[in-house]
Simulated assay, not measured.
Amino acid sequence: MIRLSDRAHGKEVDPSEPFVIENRFEHLEVLPTTNVPTQISFPPLTINAPPKTDLWRKPPHIDVDNIPTIFLPKSIDLNKFRSANVTVSGEWNTLYDQGGLVLYIFGEGLKKWVKTGIEFVFGKPFVGTVATARASDWSLVPLSESAGGKVTVHVERETKDDERLESLWVYVIGENGETLGVREVTWVFGPDVIDCDNPTSEERTMLVGVYGARPTVPEGEGRENEELVVKLDGFKVALFDD
C-alpha cells in the first residue's frame, strides 16, 4: 500500500479581484519507475470540504485552487498513467457542492487539471467534469434519481492496438455495471497545448487524487461554516507496467 498524503489548503477568495493562489505543488517528487505497483487500491476515504473551497480557472480574474485533496504521495511520470476510478457520494445540498477524482498535469509551464465526479447544480446532483488548461470548461451529465447522489467515475488513457494515444476518456459506471463514455479530453497526453509549435522538453508528470469542494456558503442560520462531507470508496489507480 502506498501511503496517502492529505493536503488541505484554505484561503479566503474575493472573485472580484485579481489574485494568484500560492503554488502548493512547488516541491513535488516523482514516484520511482521501479518497484511501483501497477494496481494501487485504497480504503474508504472521507473528505470534509469547508465553504469557499473550489478548483476553477476563469480568466481574467479567477484562478482558485484551495480544495481539500487526498493524493498519491508523489506525482508519477505522465506516460505511466493508465486509469483511475472512485465511487463518490455525499449530502449534496448547496450550489456547486462537488467531489470525485482530480488529476493535475505538470511540466509545461502551466498547471493543468481534470476533475470529475458529482456536482450539485439546478437543485440536484449531476456528473460534472471540468478540464482546465488556459481556462476551465465544464460539462454536465444527468444522474438518475435512483442513484441517490452516488456515482462511480472512471478515467482512462485512450489506447489502440497497444499504442497509447493522447486523449483521456471519462466514463460513468452505471448501477447495472454498464460503462458509458461521457467526455473525451484530447490534450492530456499530447504536446503542450499552450504552444504546440514549440513544445517544452521538460519532463511531464501527473498527480492523482480525490477531492471535495464547497464553493458556495450554505444558506440558513448557523450554516455559514458547515462542511460538506464527501465519501470516496473504491479509489484505485492503474499504471502501465513498462
Rank of each mutant, 00 (worst) to 15 (best):
A135F: 04
G190M: 04
E12V: 11
F106T: 01
W92M: 03
R157F: 01
P215A: 13
G212N: 06
V121G: 00
T159Y: 00
T132R: 07
R24I: 14
W187K: 03
E29A: 12
G220N: 09
G209S: 06
I70M: 14
E17T: 06
E226L: 02
Y104W: 14
S201E: 12
A133P: 00
E108V: 09
F25K: 03
V114L: 14
M1A: 15
K112D: 07
E163G: 00
E119P: 04
E22Q: 02
E17N: 02
R214E: 02
F126E: 02
A8D: 07
G181A: 15
I76T: 01
I2K: 05
V188S: 05
A238T: 08
T216H: 12
A8M: 09
R204T: 12
V153T: 05
T33K: 15
A131I: 06
D77G: 03
E221L: 08
D242E: 15
P218I: 06
T116N: 05
R24H: 10
S75C: 14
P73G: 09
H9I: 10
T69S: 15
D6A: 14
L207A: 11
D242V: 11
G109C: 10
L31K: 06
F120I: 06
L180C: 12
V172D: 01
G148I: 02
F71Y: 14
V13N: 04
S83T: 02
E175N: 11
S139V: 04
V130N: 08
L239I: 08
E119W: 04
P32I: 13
V170D: 00
G99Y: 10
I2M: 15
P60A: 11
L55Q: 04
N176W: 08
E145Y: 03
V64T: 15
V188F: 13
K11A: 12
E219S: 13
P73N: 13
W138C: 09
A147M: 05
L45C: 12
F106M: 11
M206S: 10
E17P: 00
V130W: 05
T152C: 01
D241K: 14
